[in-house]
Design a binder for these strands. Structure first.
Lengths: 221, 221
DNA sequence: ACCTGAACACCGTTCAAGT
DNA sequence: ACCTGAACACCGTTCAAGT
């Protein structure tokens, strides 16, 4: 009986070409999205991966799902970076390096800015985002306790701020690919305790992030 | 002879329904873009304006051109606001109010963030943007001379920063429509002279903006 | 001179037919 | 179980026919 179920397990296992195709598609899509932005066609991604258009939809229910999957990978990478930085001796430098890593990730990816809005209501993305927010909160708390940053900044703030340097520099990103570092510098300065006037609006909460998905986009009746 | 040319002038004048349709389309498009973002269909815009789909393309060569035209109007409004603020007695408050007006404009418009990238290489938009940059530079210079801001910030910096508060708050904008003010506060703090470490990357130049259009998007050969 | 809606090309998505 | 490419719906854009 148990032998049977293990045989069934083997039968149910994904085929070798399936898993291979899946990662080929993810790899191709990540590269195309980074180079061309969100508007790349599925046909192009499929061609780069060397599979038929239909195969993409065999692995991902929609283009949004595919984008969300890639998003999750990026978030996971950043989460690992943040986790490692928790061991850094300087809380201030740990936070700064975390933000720098996040900003750099987005500066090198043409799709990232726009994709934030697209992907926010995917459960997978939110889970990855929550995990990232945990790490960000820990890094922020350490820096706060060390007096390295203004006291009113939270981990969720940091998450939202990661995209800012690349977003600000976007209009001239082609001609000045390093300009995002200027605004990263500015934002890191803004986080310091020196210039702080009390922030006039409450920090975003975890609920703000989870509830955002329930609200549909505005549209006609 | 001159009588003739004036008659020709009359014959060449746009028809009354044409100019009316043009503004109907612009009005409808501006509203739909603000509510729904860049992905609204031309069909919807045409329906809201009460004209046929083809009429839209009769007035604007492409969807991008239509978006660019609306962009220019927004820029012009902001330029007027900035010009008025040059008469403000406090250079610091004048600059702050200018930035606030720009940030508010973008916070209320779902298309603005993404449209920045779309519209940057339209000649009309660049002209409007240059005009806006002039005013921003004057406001910035006044604030700089008054010691109200760090010395390394330029007018072009201010232009790029206008979109930051709305951009940062985008992921939770539906649930927290006022959150952009929190990051506006943060950025205004960052502009103060107190926290300034010298910026590590040179400011964007006028050439950076004009040259950006010549670079094509990355694509396959 | 401008409006109109049918026609076209392109892209995301589906699905019946293969293996 | 998965791959494939033909088929479908939708949207930006064009254009011949109207007024």
């Amino acid at each position: 009986m148990t032998e049977w179920s293990s045989l069934v397990r083997i039968w149910n296992m994904p085929r070798a070409d399936s898993t291979r195709n899946r990662s080929l598609v993810i790899e191709a899509a990540a590269a195309e999205l980074a180079e061309c932005g969100l508007e790349v066609s599925i046909a192009r991604i499929a061609a780069r991966a060397g599979v038929a258009k239909g195969t993409v939809f065999n692995h991902f229910a929609s283009k949004e799902d595919l984008i969300a999957a890639i998003f999750c990978e990026h978030f996971a990478t950043l989460t690992a970076t943040g986790k490692a930085l928790l061991a850094h001796s300087s809380p201030r430098e740990a936070l700064h390096e975390f933000i720098t890593a996040g900003a750099e990730l987005q500066a090198g990816d043409r799709s990232f800015c726009a994709a934030t809005a697209t992907a926010r209501d995917h459960p997978m993305v939110r889970q990855a985002s929550d995990h990232l927010a945990d790490i960000a909160e820990q890094l922020t708390a350490r820096a706060r306790e060390a007096g390295a940053i203004r006291p009113d900044i939270t981990g969720r703030d940091i998450i939202l701020l990661l995209g800012a340097p690349a977003g600000i520099a976007t209009p001239v990103a082609d001609i000045r690919p390093d300009l995002w570092r200027r605004y990263l510098n500015l934002i890191l300065d803004a986080l310091g305790p020196e210039a702080a006037r009390p922030l006039n609006v409450a920090a975003p909460t975890s609920q703000d992030f989870t509830a955002a998905s329930k609200t549909g986009k505005a549209g006609a009746t």
